[in-house]
């Protein structure tokens, strides 16, 4: 009796689990990589919500660290698409894409790679990166540009950096910011500390801001941090590419001194969505491809949602849903007929 009881419970749990009752819609399934910074997450969620609610897709969201690994995973067809790639950060784009980057009808970039990645179109969000210091520090120390940083480096030093100042650097290795290289080339006697995640870097910055300490932070716009804290950029030299561009992984990161990247700031980033060419060549995904071409998500909209998500601690999906319901005029034009 006891054995029967046990076996019956076992059978019950397994048989029922396997005795499915569903009908999967396998055809309209796509896998998306969730970006590992909040702005990217929002752009991605906007695209995913549209695809799911307006085009009847079922999207799998996969958390995957950004970098070349992600590009290869997409080229291999493991992931179908990823959102909001920033051209200045991607090393793989020039090798793997073979298309023009077009923003509002204007060609803003050209790629001559092997075409193993499909450029799906611009997101609409335009990004800018810089090094920032809090306004109170800029005013009290009189720092007007990056050239003044060395004079006050001891104020920016921490126990970890000793005599050098500390830059809370671009957190993720895969983003290819080359912070230390830039600091060295520009002769800024600071140490770039990579903290591993956006969260770690921002946590450090928030704590320092609350204690009114000076700190130098790598950050990008749009970012929720600017909504909450008053920061000023140090105005790095304007973006310039080396000619010829030797500062690549293939070129063994040979720099050309102060003449160009990475001794300059970042370019204006026309962010883009990218995907697997084979997936988006399929007729059943034609609508999705068209959607990505039409998508035009604005900085201002992302900034509003960033505040909702990060400062009011709200659920990302809810915030996006709310925005979608409130602003049909903004996204109706993205949906292919």
């Amino acid at each position: 009796m006891k054995l029967t009881k046990r076996i019956s419970a076992l059978i019950l749990s397994f048989v029922l689990i396997l005795g499915g009752l569903t009908q999967a819609n396998a055809a309209k399934r796509l896998t998306a990589a969730v970006a590992d910074w909040t702005g990217g997450e929002i752009s991605c969620q906007v695209a995913v919500t549209m695809l799911e609610e307006e085009l009847g897709y079922k999207i799998k969201r996969v958390v995957f660290p950004s970098g070349t690994g992600l590009w290869e995973a997409i080229a291999a067809g493991e992931i179908d698409f990823a959102c909001e790639s920033w051209p200045s950060y991607a090393e793989a784009d020039s090798v793997m894409m073979n298309e023009d980057l077009i923003y509002e009808g204007e060609v803003v970039g050209t790629y001559n790679g092997d075409g193993s990645i499909d450029l799906l179109g611009t997101v609409g969000v335009i990004g800018m990166s810089d090094y920032y210091i809090p306004r109170y520090a800029a005013e009290s120390l009189g720092i007007k540009s990056w050239k003044d940083l060395n004079k006050h480096k001891d104020k920016f030093a921490t126990i970890e950096t000793g005599s050098k100042g500390r830059l809370i650097a671009c957190p993720v290795a895969g983003w290819n910011c080359h912070d230390q290289k830039r600091l060295d080339l520009l002769g800024i006697d600071f140490q770039a500390d990579e903290l591993g995640t956006e969260a770690a870097a921002v946590a450090e910055a928030v704590a320092a801001y609350k204690r009114k300490e000076p700190f130098l932070l790598y950050l990008w716009e749009p970012h929720w941090f600017f909504g909450a804290y008053d920061m000023v950029g140090v105005g790095l030299p304007e973006h310039k590419v080396c000619d010829p561009d030797t500062f690549t992984e293939a070129g063994n990161w040979k720099d050309c001194g102060t003449k160009g990247w990475p001794a300059t700031g970042w370019a204006k980033d026309y962010t883009m969505n990218y995907g697997n060419p084979a997936t988006f060549a399929k007729p059943e995904h034609a609508k999705a491809k068209e959607f990505f071409e039409l998508m035009s998500f604005q900085n201002a909209d992302q900034a509003v949602m960033l505040v909702e998500v990060k400062q009011k601690n709200r659920d990302l999906k809810e915030v996006v849903k709310e925005w979608k319901d409130a602003n049909p005029d903004k996204w109706k034009s993205w949906i292919p007929k």
Partner: peptide
């Protein structure tokens, strides 16, 4: 390990 993964 992370760097290896990020750079594939």
């Amino acid at each position: 390990v992370f760097n290896g993964l990020a750079r594939s």
